[in-house]
Design a protein around this nucleic acid. Structure first.
Length: 260
DNA sequence: ATGGTAGACGCTCTA
């Protein structure tokens, strides 16, 4: 089973590119999308349905928005988590596919200024997420958490640790929150598989950073211990990113193969 | 010198 996570930076702007990518690749069974930037009703469902996907969307106008597209169907779609900081914006969606729980997340971006309310929102979001996922892991042995976590964990996860010092996504407080999430029983599949490999999932548009590979690894496929053992391969796919036309997202998809 | 691009929306915010 192939599972991918992709921050598309507007599904409407990236519909053509995403569909072309899906057609070109060996079948992606489960595609987790973030930053749809459109209302639920405006998600181009038909294009994905034509490729055999069933779609679950939790989204809002202009900002945020997540979706899960599955060739294997799904049940138990969850969009409301009854935790105010997680429900305030459309950043989470969960489904069950067979005996696996998939939780797809677009974590808040935050700000480099730790006094900014957006930083607090990010910290609170992570605290609430840890609490929720902790309970989820107690009830299920097979959990996959995918998405844009907006945090790079270590020096190897940014092109230059000096450059990223005190920058959003690389603050000590942010790394701490993501590490805490991993401590409750989630594993960073990419880093577990490739302890020394440098591979990024996001490059700044503004500096055309993709052409110098000056990026950050902020998108993840995290799994419970049981599923980590079944992770056969995991890699960043640059096909949608290293191009000028059609305009790419600032992120690239991360794709994992999990043994059935 | 506090830049630069991209997207949605509508005269600006978010990333």
């Amino acid at each position: 089973m192939k599972i991918a996570t992709f921050n598309v930076n507007s599904i409407r702007a990236r519909e053509e590119l995403t569909i072309e990518w899906l057609e070109k690749k060996n079948p992606i069974d489960i595609l987790c999308l973030q930053e749809l930037k459109c209302e639920e009703t405006k998600f181009p469902k038909e294009s994905f349905e034509r490729l055999g996907y069933k779609i679950a969307v939790n989204s809002q106008k202009r900002y945020n928005g997540v979706a899960i597209c599955s060739k294997r169907g799904f049940e138990r779609v969850k969009k409301i988590f009854d935790i105010p900081v997680l429900d305030e914006q459309k950043r989470l969606i969960e489904v069950q596919i067979g005996d696996i729980i998939i939780l797809n997340i677009y974590a808040p971006h935050g700000e480099s200024d730790e006094n900014d309310p957006k930083h607090k929102f990010k910290m609170d979001f992570y605290d609430a997420l840890k609490k929720y996922v902790s309970a989820l892991l107690h009830m299920n042995e097979r959990v996959i958490l995918t998405g844009d976590m907006n945090v790079a964990l270590a020096n190897i996860d940014v092109y230059d640790a000096k450059v990223f010092e005190n920058r959003v996504g690389f603050l000590e407080s942010e790394k701490q929150k993501l590490r805490e999430l991993l401590k409750i029983g989630l594993f960073d599949c990419f880093r577990e598989k490739y302890p020394d490999k440098k591979a990024f999932t996001w490059w700044d548009y503004r500096t055309a950073a993709i052409w110098r590979d000056e990026g950050m690894r902020i998108d993840y496929i995290l799994s419970s211990a049981k599923l980590l053992k079944k992770c056969i391969e995991i890699n960043v796919d640059l096909w949608t990113r290293r191009r000028r036309s059609p305009t790419p997202s600032d992120h690239a998809p991360l794709v994992a193969e999990i043994a059935d």
